[in-house]
Amino acid sequence: MSIKELFKKKSKVDQHTIPSAKSKADVPEGIMTKCPECKHVILTKDLLKNGKVCPSCQHHYKMTAQERIDHLFDEGSFESMDDHLKTENPLDFPSYTEKVEADAKATGLNEAVLTGVGRIQDTLVAVAVMDAHFRMGSMGSVVGEKITRAVEKATELGIPMLIFSASGGARMQEGVISLMQMAKVSVALERHANKGLLYISIMTYPTTGGVSASFASVGDINLAEPKALIGFAGRRVIEQTVREKLPEDFQTAEFLLNHGQLDAVVHRNDMPEEMNKILKLHARKGAVLV
């Protein structure tokens, strides 16, 4: 190396830390996080400790599928399923494969849902947790297949099924195949129900379109997180159709509760205890007074 090179100014770009795609995908970034609702600023680690709920206004931040599992399941009890399934490009949509691969890299998931079997305060359940960080949680073949297999696993083991929905709806790039995933999960749920098994649907922000119009709405018990957006058609589409201003709380969990579509709206930090109560009561099915 020559003397000249030693003293050469290094290009600025070399010294930048490039944020990984993963950190960009997670909501809380950096040491402090500002609540998008009330602007309250909180230490990110405290936010995470509080289940990603703003302590000031109770805003529920989006959770990743893994965070949801960690929040609810007994430590180390969760075993994931079907992480090897891979999305194809059935309609040959340009750049679809690249988009899916980029999201897979960013989220560490193979698709927009994490499925498996685990324990909630000792009760064994099968679970599907959708992740809106992956293609808006939209439902393509792999999402439909993973959820269906999880439901079939629950049926086979005779255990409750839990689905945490977080989805913008159908996966446009898979066209009518995406639509048919609604039916696929439904036929599996019918078998599960037919065995007298419990299915709990938990709707989180957002649960819309084809997911709302299929498995998310037909739990034996339908729960939702506060303020979660839940609906069939998009707000803008409805406004254009009916040409009237919609109420502020339209399509929120509270709106649905008022209109008889939900059993309860449950605060995220109350969810472990509520879930435990429901599961334990159902485990004692057929018990008689002594």
Partner: peptide, 21 residues
């Protein structure tokens, strides 16, 4: 299915979903 306010209030999603199952 009709994308309207009343349809949402009366559970358009649930009605469709129930039929599938």
């Amino acid at each position: 299915a009709y994308p309207g306010k009343a349809a949402e209030e009366r559970g358009q999603s649930e009605a469709i979903a129930r039929n599938l199952v």
